[in-house]
Computed example of a mutant assay.
Amino acid sequence: MCYFEQTRWACGYWKWGNFRQQCNKEYRTGETCGLKLVYDTSYLDGVCKICDQITKKDRRYRKMEQDIQRWQHEGNRRATIEKTTKDMADLNIQIGALYHSHQEKQRSIC
């Protein structure tokens, strides 16, 4: 039950920080017992890295959608549309994985 700093963002995402205090269960200097307790929590107003990545990928996905709509009206861009559609599917999988990891971290116990 050693104590660590914690950082928590407005979106609910959190991460462990630096080691702060050793508990009385561990007698070796510089070692921790393996159990983590919160010493102090720093709250940040901004978004976490994962939310930032999700936002960037979502903007890119929306841009690809607009491009496909424009290309369909222009015509004669079938190969470009197919490639962009595949890229959109890959991007959608990446966004889903990021969102899933963010939700798992929010649900996990500090």
Rank of each mutant, 00 (worst) to 15 (best):
55 T>F: 09
43 Y>S: 07
6 Q>I: 12
86 K>T: 12
88 M>G: 05
83 K>M: 07
49 K>P: 10
59 R>N: 13
81 I>L: 09
35 L>Y: 08
54 I>K: 07
62 R>E: 08
4 F>E: 05
104 E>P: 00
1 M>E: 05
23 C>R: 04
84 T>K: 10
108 S>D: 07
5 E>N: 14
32 T>P: 00
54 I>H: 05
45 D>K: 08
20 R>I: 04
58 D>N: 08
99 Y>Q: 06
7 T>I: 15
35 L>D: 09
72 Q>K: 14
59 R>D: 12
28 R>D: 10
28 R>N: 11
26 E>S: 01
89 A>E: 15
9 W>I: 10
61 Y>S: 08
90 D>K: 12
53 Q>C: 04
70 R>I: 03
66 Q>L: 05
48 C>S: 05
97 A>W: 01
29 T>H: 08
18 N>L: 04
62 R>K: 14
96 G>C: 07
110 C>Q: 09
105 K>E: 13
30 G>Y: 01
79 A>K: 15
108 S>G: 06
31 E>W: 13
47 V>W: 02
1 M>F: 02
48 C>T: 05
81 I>Q: 06
67 D>L: 08
83 K>T: 11
34 G>K: 05
107 R>T: 01
101 S>T: 14
14 W>I: 01
105 K>P: 00
62 R>G: 00
84 T>F: 03
3 Y>H: 14
17 G>L: 10
103 Q>I: 06
69 Q>Y: 07
16 W>G: 07
85 T>R: 14
20 R>G: 02
68 I>G: 06
86 K>R: 15
89 A>P: 00
73 H>N: 09
56 K>F: 08
99 Y>E: 02
54 I>Y: 04
101 S>E: 11
68 I>V: 15
20 R>P: 01
6 Q>M: 15
87 D>V: 02
105 K>A: 13
26 E>V: 02
89 A>I: 09
14 W>C: 02
20 R>W: 01
77 R>N: 14
25 K>H: 12
25 K>S: 11
108 S>Y: 00
88 M>C: 03
93 I>F: 03
106 Q>Y: 00
109 I>F: 08
54 I>T: 02
26 E>W: 01
11 C>I: 06
59 R>L: 09
57 K>I: 02
9 W>K: 07
80 T>L: 11
11 C>G: 03
110 C>K: 13
39 Y>C: 05
53 Q>A: 13
93 I>Q: 11
54 I>E: 02
53 Q>W: 04
76 N>M: 11
82 E>Y: 06
